[in-house]
Design a protein around this nucleic acid. Structure first.
Lengths: 345, 345
DNA sequence: TTGTATGCGTTATCAC
DNA sequence: GTGATAACGCATACAA
């Protein structure tokens, strides 16, 4: 065990330092701000005092004075899986490079983030990014009127900017690959388009491909995005009289579970049925057959979001930005010559 | 596209509200604080004004006044893999429940977090948690003197509290299982004990088991914790004249890579060689044979850290806390009847 | 029940 | 080059 909260130099303020150095607080402030006008001699005195007293300026006092929090907010769903980690990493790194700290808020799956917490978060930052579908539109618009706000991978909302990775086109490409190259004729989409704008767009792309190939569009299997949802979907699929010959899943977690459950039930993947995912998480490379999926530049997206926020905060007019390009990654689960070895990122 | 930074009700302060409601700022403050002394009539007037003006109190002004940031800091390495996500989730959730926000700082792998950023972070929170091995001891001690600081899964540092999951005992248990149940005689440890206190403790447990079984203790294979490090380790192992019959890896990422590479090279796992990991990440359940590993209550750890920090901030004397218990998860890769189906969490 | 006045720790605008 | 001093926006002790 160790020292409890401490009597230490806790109450050290700019006044203490000024006293100790025999100067005014203005001078201390100047020195700490790196102003060039102060003489070398004074500077040294001040720095010595700062060091001796172990002084750190109060962040809130500073924020209050400069009218800036020098912080960015980020609202994410409970993050498991690499998607959110990556997004967060990209965001944090970019923010740090800009000298901004990031305050993070995680929403409970399902419930979303309540307006109060959201507002409190917004109050402590200069701008914030919110993953699509977590905060309701009304709260979003209200906040957007107060400070820079960006919705990531979300639905279009009047009055609020957004940024995301491309979905529709690559989903069409992926599905067409299944229909064309692998001659699939009865594909099904696993995922609930209403659960998230991403999923909706992926479904849209799926539908577009089917229509282009004159294939009847089946109702999507509306399940969530977790492993357990994939298992449930697989059971449903297995119970059907007419089984699909291709399962296009909304993300890798569900796809992996489906793949696994199907193989388990004795089906030949990709012989009888193709399975695809979305995200290209680590496990996608390790399973056999390797999971065909779509890779998104998630980290870059996170970084871009932070930089864009900063631009808006500093008043720079941000250049219009298209959705970030994604890439279909072909492995064995769709029917491609599943290289036994996996494709490295 | 949407509204740029906005002329909106940005400069709305408690004074505006007071004016609009025809009361003093003290009353506004009271209403917002939920004080019961104010009359219903006034309360309504104020609330109406707040709503009409879309007022949100300034976080920094409030912090300055109450001398509290109502925020917790968390310093993590760049988080990939579920370990950090889980820790973060547990931490954030507990913090949110306590009404605290969390500001996150990610350290570049290797370099650690520079003292300046660390200090800036510390200045904006009431207490912070740091993952072991990221910030140097000196900076740690200095900060610990100023405000509650907790090191998670770190080395013992005089004057700094810490909290972690159990490592040594479960590592001994795991290794003994290899030596006893599976009759292994030439195990090797993959991981650098100097890279992190966790790894050191796992190695310590490994060594203890060998000594208890009168097995010569080999030099550990000092590599990092990423997949690529595991690949490198596997190559090294494969090149040896005398190959080990058990590979105890410091975490799952490296273990999976080792497992994969070994199987690839034609070795029989677990016939010729056992492979084990640590963490029980998702992929561990999906590979064949399933990866034997150790599961840590990471999320609980994160939550515990946040609560403990809060206790110390509020002056509660925290009860002494042992390391959190971990659990060995036996799957196929050690030689156990690798249930083809995986063990669910 | 409500209002007045002061302090919180900085930054920044003036003078000197 | 340096020092008073006024904001910054809120909480709160004290009066009324």
């Amino acid at each position: 065990m160790a020292a409890h909260a401490s009597p230490g130099p806790a109450g050290t303020t700019i006044y203490s330092v000024a006293d100790a150095a025999g100067v005014s607080i203005a001078t201390v402030s100047r020195v700490l701000a790196g102003s060039q006008v102060v003489s070398q001699r004074t500077r040294d005195k001040v720095l010595a005092a700062v060091d001796r007293l172990d002084y750190t300026p109060s962040a809130s006092a500073r924020s209050l004075a400069v009218r800036q929090h020098e912080a960015l907010g980020l609202v994410l769903p409970e993050l498991d899986g690499p998607y959110f980690s990556e997004l967060l990493m990209g965001f944090e790194e970019a923010a740090a490079d800009l000298g901004l700290s990031v305050v993070l808020s995680l929403a409970d799956r399902g419930r979303g983030l309540d307006a109060t917490r959201f507002q409190r978060l917004a109050a402590g930052v200069d701008g914030l990014a919110v993953l699509g579908g977590i905060v309701d539109d009304e709260a979003l618009r209200r906040t957007a009127r107060q400070k820079p706000l960006l919705v990531v991978a979300g639905a279009e909302t009047p009055g609020v900017d957004r940024l995301s990775a491309e979905n529709v086109t690559s989903s069409t490409e992926l599905t067409s690959h299944l229909l064309g190259t692998h001659g699939r004729t009865a594909p099904v989409f696993v995922g609930d388009p209403d659960i998230a704008p991403d999923v909706r767009q992926r479904h849209d792309g799926f539908v577009a491909a089917l229509e282009a190939h004159d294939v009847a569009v089946p109702e999507p299997l509306r399940v969530g995005l977790r492993e357990s949802d994939g298992v449930a979907a697989a059971e449903l699929l297995l119970a059907r009289h007419a089984r699909p010959d291709a399962v296009v899943c909304a993300n890798d977690e569900t796809a992996l579970a489906v793949l696994d459950r199907l193989v388990d039930a004795g089906l030949d993947v990709p012989g009888e049925v193709s399975v695809t995912g979305w995200d290209d998480i680590m496990t996608a490379r390790y399973v056999r057959p390797g999971l065909t999926t779509v890779r998104q530049p998630v980290r870059e997206l996170g970084a871009l979001v932070a930089r864009r926020l900063h631009e808006r905060i500093t008043g720079v007019d941000p250049a219009p930005q298209d959705a970030l390009a994604t890439r279909v990654v072909l492995r064995g689960s769709c029917g491609c010559p599943g290289d036994a070895r996996r494709t490295r990122p």
